[in-house]
Design a protein around this nucleic acid. Sequence first.
DNA 1: TCATTTCTGAGGAACGTACCTCAAAAATTG
DNA 2: CAATTTTTGAGGTACGTTCCTCAGAAATGA
Lengths: 354, 354
Amino acid sequence: MTRPTVNDIAREAGVSLATVDRVLNARPGVREKTILAVHQAIDRLGYVRDLAAANLARSRSYRMVALLPDSDSQFVQTLADALTEAAALAAASRTELDLLRYPPEDMHILAARLAELRPDETAGVALMAPETPIVRDAVRALRGRGIPLVALGSDLPNTGRDHFVGIDSHAAGRTAGVLMGRFCRGLKGRVLPIADSMLLRDSIERRRGFDEVLQADFPDLDAMPTLETHGAPDVLHRIVGARLAATPDVVGLYLLGSGHRALAALLRDRGLLGRFVVIGHELTPHSRSALRSGHLDAVIAQNPGHLARSALRVLRAKADRQPIDEGQEQLRIEVVIRENLPPEPAEDCQIRAA
Amino acid sequence: MTRPTVNDIAREAGVSLATVDRVLNARPGVREKTILAVHQAIDRLGYVRDLAAANLARSRSYRMVALLPDSDSQFVQTLADALTEAAALAAASRTELDLLRYPPEDMHILAARLAELRPDETAGVALMAPETPIVRDAVRALRGRGIPLVALGSDLPNTGRDHFVGIDSHAAGRTAGVLMGRFCRGLKGRVLPIADSMLLRDSIERRRGFDEVLQADFPDLDAMPTLETHGAPDVLHRIVGARLAATPDVVGLYLLGSGHRALAALLRDRGLLGRFVVIGHELTPHSRSALRSGHLDAVIAQNPGHLARSALRVLRAKADRQPIDEGQEQLRIEVVIRENLPPEPAEDCQIRAA
DNA sequence: TCATTTCTGAGGAACGTACCTCAAAAATTG
DNA sequence: CAATTTTTGAGGTACGTTCCTCAGAAATGA
């Protein structure tokens, strides 16, 4: 009737509790034959290890570290909030999170930060960073010391990171392309992509996916060369303004990175609001308000809350050397328009029970 | 350095462990003054109760019941699978789930099922059912016996259910309407809504949201009266075929409920594939394949995995009398097109660690 | 065969909390 | 003031697991 415990398995398998424990925790010193017998007993009884008890006994607490660039990007800020909130929840399961920021312009500082993390103090690291050689080496060294690392938001495929928590930028770009194409149905003209920097892998991949779709399925649309704003609103205002003035047949704008507010300001200044189909990425306070007011037609987003929780779950699983539930960790490419805009996340954070 | 425990609170507050325990678990026999002192100590130390240890000590196990209609609807089937998978995961935290089905045509049987659930055996119920008077009374009686209930997928607002796990049908309909309108940009004509039955609240609300948007923002599109298929593929084939033959200016099809396969078959038979913009609801094997092949342009969906996990989390929180994390339980209205179609969920279910 | 290595059993302490009992202390009553 | 009630303290056991030690059994080598 009641749930089987390790003692039940021991009895069922005809071995001692100690042996069951050795098998369950993959400790050495057990014959293949015995391991098999224990596993069969586990299957017969349908034993599921009680995680609560296991973690209690381990009395291990998990100190995770999240490293985000200290940029004023709204997406990073939103993600930081989501991480903080997820950490508050995870505190109940002995997981704490140190949220650190590094200056985005100097990867050496980031590398130094990573280098000073010690395996006995750090159960795992979630890192959001571009994959430069310096970062790559630092990540490899970190993993060499036995500290698991997940790439957050932007992948680091050549570092041997344990996991990538985020969405496929190429597919996200394709999605943006389809929406652009369909929203521009019947129109003929050019689409202007606007990015922070085309040195970032994410932007490159988004752009590639976007172009693929436009070329294959929407021959009436023509993607122009990407304008780079380097995250500066005034640069965006100037160069996008100039390009629009010089190109009368632009029908769509594709905002690959940040700049929602600057773009809205520009369009308002020039009396161009509503003249273009505008597609962007990531849901932030600015893109939310642009969606609401109709200056932005759709956003391709990843859910920061899911990102944060998934990162913590994966790190926890890695720290426990447990397999991860691929299904649950699969992040979706979200399409957000005004009508399915999720409600603003609440600011207050309840801790104590009622 | 390490996490504070009940003993630390006792010391900090200058009381005994027993008193701290009484306060934490809201047991009687403690003066207001002492309660306050303990709470202050808790705040000062930043104590967070270790849920794992707490539940272990309680040695409480949670038997949840999910009740789904025994229809052959693919969405219900998908949801059932998701619930089973979520339950396998939840087993590690002493939560088990009994997945029951009831004949969709007889609410009396459902009511009887609900009536026989006893509070000492059942920690919570997740119910997917239309809100008929019989169901309403049964749910009220259930809650009267102290068993928490969450409405799953389809809300039961007038039953006093503890929580609704699902998306707002009205907003989902609006989202469908916007996509229909935008995908039909430049076209003038009629849109044909197809539903299983317009007696279901979900269909009514979706239709209402859809109409609102079409009327307000897309004057070139005109929504026709809804065709009801009663879930029968042959009925769909016949009546939709007839209506399309009689109405040459249909530009869009809006599938409010099931019938993706039957609709695809009809369009294929008549050589009409690709002639209409088709928008549907819910991601199922049939709608997936329709999206992939291009017979379906977009799907408005709720993630069954999230639904299932959210339902279990909420029920668990209710059973523990803990507050629920609104942010995490907020389900999104997902827009799925071919480009952001999530990968097919894997069939196999890893249980044991590697 | 004996020595050696490899495996197994028995037992116990610990993790942080819940919940129980009994007695002592403090507050409240008449 | 004593009698009563209310509040508090001290100590214990239990939950299911992890992880430790040490001795003894079994398998393996020479």
